[in-house]
């Protein structure tokens, strides 16, 4: 018994340490989210609820974009999140094959709630099977960092000089760049997909009819679906994600 609980503690601590850099990275990003929420006119309570319930920086940025853009249809917010979160289906499928026996239903739910792009990436780097203590530890610091950063951002928006908030504004898109660029550098198809999405996104922005009639949520959805269809037709993928063929 004693040995089992030390093992669990060890696993948790190992995971917690792996999660610290991710958690630190989230603080400025979610600070930017908190600032953006305050700028959009949301109350402190609302921005806290949003950061606690919606554990996604990119999702929050998209939701605030829609809100500022005057989108009033709730279904548009939901569809945007839907499209943006399709990838978790894939993440889940590949990571589930690395789960060990400690991952029962409750543990799967718990890990699912804490999962993010970066947590997924870190977990897939880990060799061998993944246990619940490790995954719970891994997910802890990023979530704390995310909610903490949002709180700091929402609290101090009005205290920060304009020069600082302007400089913080680039953090969120810069985070996306730090996710996109390494993959585009490694894989030519990803690079081409990214370039097509980039051009299409600018083109959609330049067409007056689209700009006047569609909210930014729609242009993101259209751009993502068209680009990914082109990618899937031109460069079919053999194996998804990191290879997990250890059966």
């Amino acid at each position: 018994m004693g040995e089992v609980s030390t093992d669990k503690k060890k696993g948790y601590m190992h995971g917690f340490k792996d999660g610290i850099p991710i958690g630190l990275g989230y603080i400025p990003v979610s600070m930017a989210c908190g600032i953006a929420a305050a700028k959009a006119g949301l109350s402190f309570g609302m921005s806290e609820i949003m950061s606690i319930l919606m554990y996604t920086g990119s999702g929050q940025a998209a939701a605030l974009n829609l809100f500022v853009g005057g989108e009033t249809a709730i279904i548009m917010y939901v569809i945007t999140l839907f499209v943006m979160n399709c990838r978790y289906m894939l993440f889940s499928m590949s990571i589930a094959q690395k789960f060990d026996k400690s991952m029962g239903t409750l543990q799967r739910i718990g890990f699912g709630l804490l999962n993010t792009d970066e947590v997924f990436g870190m977990a897939m780097k880990e060799k061998g099977l993944l246990g619940f203590p490790y995954l719970l530890g891994l997910g802890t610091a990023p979530y704390i960092g995310f909610v903490l950063g949002n709180t700091i951002g929402a609290c101090f928006t009005n205290l920060l000089p304009a020069a600082i908030t302007s400089a913080l504004g680039i953090m969120l898109p810069a985070m996306f760049i730090s996710i996109i660029v390494p993959s585009a550098k490694e894989s030519k198809p990803v690079l081409i997909v990214v370039l097509i999405a980039l051009v299409l996104s600018f083109v959609l922005e330049c067409i007056p009819f689209i700009k006047e009639n569609l909210t930014s949520g729609w242009t993101i959805i259209i751009c993502a679906i068209v680009t990914s269809l082109i990618g899937a037709i031109a460069f079919p993928v053999e194996e998804m994600g990191e290879s997990t063929d250890d059966e």
């Binding site: 990838r87 996710i179 996104s201 998804m240």
Partner: peptide
Amino acid sequence: NSFLAYIPYAVLTSMTFPEI
């Protein structure tokens, strides 16, 4: 599989540009 593999990059790119 391929479609889903490209979705994250396409979404992130169109969210980043020209917004950045």
